[in-house]
Structures are given as C-alpha cells and as structure tokens.
Amino acid sequence: MYRIVNKEALKPTVILYEIEAPMVAKKAQPGQFIILRVDENGERIPITIHDYDREKGTVTIIVQTVGATTEKLSHKQAGEYLQDFVGPLGKPTETEGKKKVCVVGGGVGCAIAYPVLKKFHDSGAEVHAVVGFKSKDVVILEDKFRAAASVLKICTDDGSYGQKGLVTQALQELLDAGNVYDEIFAIGPMVMMKFVSKTTEPYGIPTTVSMSPIMIDGTGMCGGCRLSVGGEMKFACVDGPDFDGHKVDWDLAVKRNQMYRDFEAHKYEEACNLFKQEVK
C-alpha cells in the first residue's frame, strides 16, 4: 500500500498527488512513468511522473479525471492509500548534448512536459516552450514553465488566455521566426503529437514524442502497448515511451487507443453514479 502524502486540486478535474514510494523516488527520471491501482478491483493505469523527491521518498503525479479509475482516484484523500504503485517504468528522456530545444505540451501532458523541460534547462540548453489548453480555467504550471523557458507561448482553444489556437500554430510561428532547434519534444494527446510531428517534418527537426498507449503490466509481457514505428513493432513500456515522432504510425496508434472506449465510457458512468449515490 502506498500513502498519499499530499493532494492538491490544481483545477477541479486536474489533481496533483504526492505518493510515498521511496524505491520509485530513488530511481525516477523525467520521461518515465509509473503504474498504479487504486483498489483491490482496480485496473492498472500508466501515469507519467511529474516530479520526485528522493530525500522525502515521494513521487508526484498529475492526473486529469477522465474515466472510472481516475474518478475513483479523485475521491482518495491525503493520508489514504493506493493499492499499488510500481515504477519507474520506461526509459528516461534523453536530454544531453542539446543546445536549443522546444518543448510542446498539451493539456495535462504539460504535467509531464515540465520535468523534461526542466532537465533540458538544467543540462544547459536554451529552452522554448509551447503549451496548449482548452481554456483559461484549465491552465496549469504557468509559473514553473515561465521560470525555466526563455520563450513561453500559451495557447487556448477558445482564446480565453494567451493566444487563440492550437500549439501547432504557435510552434509554426516560432519556426517561421527563424528559430533553429536541435530537438522538439512533444507530449499531450496523440492527435496533438501527430500534428506537431507533421509540423516539424518538413524542417527535418528531430522530434521526440512520449507515447501513452494501452498497457497492463508495463514490463514487456502483455504486448498491449505495441506501436508501429518506422515499420517495426515496438513496445512503449520497454522500448519507449519516447519515440521518433516522424516514424510513428499515428493513425494506427490513435485508433488502437480507442479499443476499449465503449467499455471505459460505461465504467465511468457507473463510477460517477456510484459516487453520486454515496453523496446522497
């Protein structure tokens, strides 16, 4: 069992959890993920690591409430326990030897973009950042991004904050302005990562994406997380989660992630109804 040391709602549906897991905290690096189970009947879900404190022995994750499991998680309070918390899984993001990079984050993906951005910054690179959100009320981590990025572009779909439009437009503007990057790192919804990759492809800029396919064990056993990358079969849990965005077969990845959509929608409804009943 793993204790929730701290819980903070960054936004009503975007929640930060600091979990006591010394073994994981000792090894965690930006770009890696954990797998957690909320309770005895819970599913195993992969969540990318936001932060860690090796001395305190804690790992921080930021989770958006989007389905049954994250709904259940959101009802756990500080001081309560998670059934399982295993990691760090996957390979860390490689940040060495880059002079100038641009990190692109979308939605709650920004929670993961930040530690990668910070690592680029700490290893001496000049860092630009483009972060996108639906609207002003779900913008997270702005101060942190501002502190580590020399250029920060915030986009919202509805224009309620920053510039109106998609991250790809803002990225295009940076490229048009003559910025030359050694690497672009993108994390967020698959569709966003796909179009970031499409945007950078004509420029030949190496573009790394952090993939989050369907996964169960996370250790290279079930094969659920397989992707087609450059025509080869790759497993996100052991070969990734970072891949060359120009080589990922995006259409397939997007569709495979919807494999259990109906089931998930049904479970989410069930979970919501359950919690509503409890409130009554």
Binding site: N41, G42, E43, T69, D217, C222, G223, G224
Partner: peptide, 25 residues
C-alpha cells in the same frame, strides 16, 4: 491482441467479473 494480454486481463485482472475495472473485449 496477444494471448498474454487477453489472458492477463482475464486471469490476473479478473476482467470477466462485473466488479473488475479492467476492460476486456
């Protein structure tokens, strides 16, 4: 899907039971 994935969902995660949160086709 691989047999490993299918079997893990059923055997380890008990996805055939209604109270399991793990999806199964």
């Amino acid at each position: 899907l691989s047999a490993n994935e299918f079997l893990t969902r059923i055997n380890l995660m008990k996805a055939y039971k209604p109270d399991s949160d793990t999806p199964i086709i």
